[in-house]
Design a protein around this nucleic acid. Structure first.
Lengths: 224, 224
DNA sequence: AGATCTTACAATGTATACAAAATACAGGAG
DNA sequence: CTCCTGTATTTTGTATACATTGTAAGATCT
């Protein structure tokens, strides 16, 4: 386990939330690896808090599907199998389709403007070559759509599903070869939303997810 | 708040799980009403445990969307607005469509047999007039489909969404007028799955959810 | 009267102490 | 040498004590 785990935000937040965010970050960044045990005492010592907030943070991580605990055995970082990823992506595909349909109905001029901005920023980001910036821009683009869908529960779910694949997605976005295709897909989605063409936007969104799925499957296979 | 809250299972389970199940039941049955505060000391006294397992159970309830906590203020039973219910049902509709599509591809003879059995049991249950049995049979019918979809995460999500509407759904199932329509819809879904007619099964599933949605909307309006 | 400050109380947040279970390991019997 | 078993250690589970914060009632001042 990494030893650079450290609490950041001194904000006025319950420690359980601070611990939760810290561990979440660490898992998503890969500092805490899948299958690695999350031992309360160890984490508590490392983060300089007591076991109580650690335990509560772990319960919250379970919630997000980032950790799994076995009673009287402890918690560990959730593993992601290829099957598991397919399952998540199936769900994400269905919900992304829903989101774009809703956005198609509800997105206003303001929302479209933000979406266009996010799209441009994504294009700029790919040209800069900074992977982190690319990832953030991608998140922003999709968030703009989710926001327009005006369904907070849907937004939460989608962000959650995204998180569960984060580690793999970063690899995806590292591959500069995919940028062209991604930009084109984003443009298509944007265009369809602007034109309120619901059928086409659903297809576009679906393809977008399926492409990611295929890429990631290949990646996982290569890993082995 | 009800005062018949009591711990059942003396099983070999962490108390947090026992408390979690107890509170969950109480919320779903309506013994703990939406908006009611979940005070740790009070619950701890009532259930005869310390605050620790209570707090962890509350974190788990948050996870299921059954409770909401405001830092330094405490937790309360989640409220469900009409908009919230629409949001949940939109999601459920999309995921139910996904589930039947997957089931359509993957359901084997064994699965079909179980589904037919569940369908029959539902019909019997409606004739018996026992609402609880009707509810259970309905759950069993849909679970048979979810199981065939072979996507555990999807199944978890759908069960979760179902829970969030449980209180309203019970009212739905109390209304004997809806039985005929429900039976017909179940039959149609079963038939389409048997015939592997993916397009029609999606439509049938979608209608099934939409009908529920309309019924519940009316009910909520009547309540006011 | 109205506003603001004090103060007391109640609830949550956090740390720690103790209990029980799981695990690892050493030693002995076969 | 292997397997079992008992013990020590580690880790989780639970209770409780203490700290902090939010809230509301009442006092004080203007």
């Amino acid at each position: 386990m990494t030893d650079k785990l450290e609490l950041n935000m001194n904000a006025y937040l319950p420690l359980r939330d601070v611990v939760f965010h810290t561990l979440r970050e660490a898992i998503l960044k890969g500092e805490l690896k899948p299958g690695e045990r999350l031992m309360e005492l160890q984490l508590a010592a490392k983060l300089g808090v007591s076991r109580t907030p650690i335990r509560e943070a772990i319960r919250m991580l379970e919630q997000e599907g980032l950790a799994v605990t076995i009673p009287r055995k402890g918690a560990e970082v959730a593993k992601m199998t290829e099957k598991g990823m397919e399952d998540v992506l199936q769900i994400r595909r269905a919900l992304d389709e829903l989101a774009v349909q809703l956005a198609c109905d509800k997105m206003d001029a303001e929302g479209l403007k933000e979406l266009r901005f996010a799209m441009k920023e994504f294009e700029d980001a790919t040209r800069s070559g900074e992977v982190k910036r690319v990832a953030q821009a991608d998140v922003a683009f999709h968030d703009a759509i989710y926001a327009a869908a005006d369904n907070p529960k849907l937004m939460t779910l989608l962000n959650n599903l995204r998180e569960q694949m984060y580690r793999y997605r970063v690899e995806y976005l590292k591959d500069a070869n995919s940028y062209e295709a991604l930009i084109a897909e984003h443009q298509k989605i944007f265009h369809c939303l602007k034109e309120r063409d619901k059928e086409r936007v659903v297809r576009a969104s679906s393809e977008h997810v399926v492409n990611q799925e295929n890429f990631m499957k290949n990646m996982i296979r290569e890993q082995e």
